Computed example of a mutant assay.
Amino acid sequence: MDVLSLIGLILAFVAILGGNLLEGGHVSSLVNGPAALIVLGGTLAAALLQAPMSAFKRAVQILRWILFPPRIDLPGGIDRIIGWSMTARKEGLLGLESVADSEPDPYARKGLQLLVDGAEPASIRSILEVDFITQENRDIQAAKVYESMGGYAPTIGIIGAVMGLIHVMGNLADPSQLGGGIAVAFVATIYGVASANLFLLPVANKLKAIALRQSRYREMLLEGLLSIAEGENPRSIELKLQGFME
């Protein structure tokens, strides 16, 4: 679990609710059904209108990365590549066939299979580059769904505020109707700004960072596999790949 994300989510709620309580407010004053419907429904509608179905589905799939990110072990990846290179030096590239069959990572397995099949380094690079660039673009586009929602939410909140004020202006003669309209106006603004800046935009940036880190890991695997194909010494491969370390 990503502890920093969990702490961030908890701290966001504590900051908003705690500040409200310290100012003498009540939690119930921040709960407003019409405001939530306007902001959340409007923001979701705008995102659905903008994003293609594939990007939206992927955005839903990778949201869990916020708390449960994929494991990306750069030092472990280097150790695996060095092990593959030593096997290739001792047994030849065909010695990697059993390694490829048992490799759980589809990307690494494809690269190892290309080595076993005797593909040229240029061919290996072109095939694997397409894979990791396509996956990176797919995940970045999914993260941008949340980024776009973070851009729309404050504006939708303002729309909710204006609608609440319209309700207020239309009922100036009836003081009993003023409270509800004013509440929708201010709470809608809070919902829009808070959801954008405390959740949607941070989520988008975190997902982008994870996607880029995955791409760096795949690029490291690619360089390692190419070095093996070119018959480089395991020690020189290790020194080269250490440049990918953070």
Rank of each mutant, 00 (worst) to 15 (best):
I16P: 08
L128V: 13
D139H: 14
L178C: 02
S102P: 10
S148Q: 13
V14R: 09
R64K: 11
Y152L: 07
P202E: 05
G170R: 05
I127A: 14
I182H: 06
G42R: 12
I133L: 14
L178V: 04
V193I: 15
Q242K: 15
L44F: 15
F186Y: 07
K144P: 00
F186N: 10
L200R: 11
I7D: 01
S123C: 05
L201S: 01
I38E: 10
P69Y: 11
M1E: 06
V130D: 15
A108S: 14
K90T: 09
R58N: 11
A194V: 02
L198Y: 15
D105A: 09
F13R: 00
G42T: 09
L226R: 09
V31D: 01
A229I: 12
A59P: 00
L21G: 02
P234E: 02
I7Y: 01
T87M: 09
D101E: 15
P104W: 15
L74I: 07
A55W: 14
G160S: 07
E230W: 05
I166N: 04
E232W: 05
L115H: 10
G19H: 03
G92F: 03
R235V: 07
V3W: 03
A119H: 12
Q50R: 15
L178S: 10
G157I: 05
M53V: 15
